[in-house]
Simulated assay, not measured.
Amino acid sequence: MDTYDVVVVGGGPAGLNAALVLGRCRRRVVVIDAGVPRNAAATHAHGFLTRDGVPPLEILARGRRELAGYGVDIRDLEVTHLEARDDGMRVTLQDGATLACRKLLLATGVRDTLPDLPGVAALYGTSIHHCPYCDGWENRDRPVAVYGRPKEATGLALSLLTWTRDLVVCTDGRRLTAATKAQLEAAGIPARTEKIVRVDGEHGRLSRIVFATGAPLLRHAMFFNTGQGQRSTLAAQLGCRFTRTGHVRCDRKGYTGVPHLFIAGDANGDVQFVIVAAAEGAKAAVAINKELQAQDHEAARRA
């Protein structure tokens, strides 16, 4: 059984940055990554100083290359089981290998729920988006559709006014409530409540939304708010507590309340930017290293 100071589950910005900090602390670290990053479909990452406009997969590749200089191991596998022990964790991988570690960091992220519409998957990440802060600038002053249930779509549309006023809310057969109708009318945002048949586009670019009745809606892009969920069940397996929105509860350093277990990145429901995930990874790494230092000092004292 291979033994590590820290096992990091998830090789996105949070996990890789945590591994970088811990590697520089001379800790023995392994990153376990299933290879399904949340933003794999995105063409560019934004809002990250010195990395604005860099493709997300390139950021991850750079991070992996940097980790090699600090002796951090990377295994491209899934974790199938976690077991809490008094002295740390036992981690079982899909190839049957078992690892032991003193501390575990979960950086498994979330999975976005895409609109269940024909044509969405082919356009996701290029002209269909979930985050205005990530992709609003690229669609400034363009005709944009906003998809979701009335309440969620209305909130997203009002936020998108920062970038464009050419907005149409699409509720896919759901009627507006009196409150959402009043909000949209006050903001001058029209709505289409007809059932959507499909979205059309070519080469990653949305062209129109086709409804069961009425004329198609010509749009340059679409933003949606249809929710998200934990990408992994590992936090639940270990008894973590969750918020009402389904995110993992933790303190500001990433400690979950489960002994030896920390979390960083989108799974905790904080602002979900690449730069924030990386920063959370660094903060969790410092907290983890402090716990390891305390254990090391106590072991030396007893010796």
Rank of each mutant, 00 (worst) to 15 (best):
residue 202 E to A: 15
residue 68 A to M: 05
residue 255 Y to N: 11
residue 245 T to M: 13
residue 120 V to L: 02
residue 39 N to Q: 02
residue 1 M to G: 14
residue 35 G to Q: 09
residue 209 I to Y: 03
residue 132 P to A: 07
residue 212 A to P: 00
residue 66 E to I: 03
residue 71 G to E: 06
residue 242 F to Y: 14
residue 25 C to K: 09
residue 149 R to Y: 01
residue 72 V to D: 08
residue 127 S to T: 03
residue 244 R to N: 09
residue 178 A to D: 14
residue 130 H to P: 01
residue 268 N to I: 10
residue 40 A to V: 09
residue 253 K to W: 05
residue 179 A to E: 14
residue 163 W to M: 06
residue 63 G to E: 05
residue 202 E to P: 00
residue 172 D to Y: 02
residue 211 F to V: 09
residue 227 G to E: 03
residue 103 K to Y: 01
residue 104 L to H: 11
residue 296 D to C: 03
residue 177 T to W: 02
residue 66 E to V: 10
residue 290 K to Q: 14
residue 98 T to H: 02
residue 292 L to R: 06
residue 81 H to S: 13
residue 61 A to L: 04
residue 295 Q to S: 11
residue 238 L to A: 14
residue 296 D to T: 10
residue 120 V to C: 05
residue 203 H to Q: 15
residue 170 C to E: 01
residue 114 L to E: 05
residue 52 D to E: 13
residue 213 T to K: 14
residue 27 R to G: 12
residue 289 N to H: 15
residue 90 R to E: 12
residue 191 A to V: 12
residue 35 G to E: 05
residue 274 V to I: 15
residue 227 G to W: 07
residue 241 R to L: 12
residue 265 G to D: 03
residue 181 K to S: 15
residue 199 V to A: 07
residue 59 I to C: 07
residue 232 S to C: 10
residue 161 L to S: 07
residue 41 A to S: 11
residue 103 K to N: 07
residue 263 I to P: 01
residue 72 V to T: 12
residue 119 G to H: 04
residue 113 T to Y: 07
residue 83 E to Y: 01
residue 278 A to G: 09
residue 114 L to N: 11
residue 118 P to N: 07
residue 257 G to H: 05
residue 149 R to I: 00
residue 301 R to L: 14
residue 209 I to L: 14
residue 180 T to G: 06
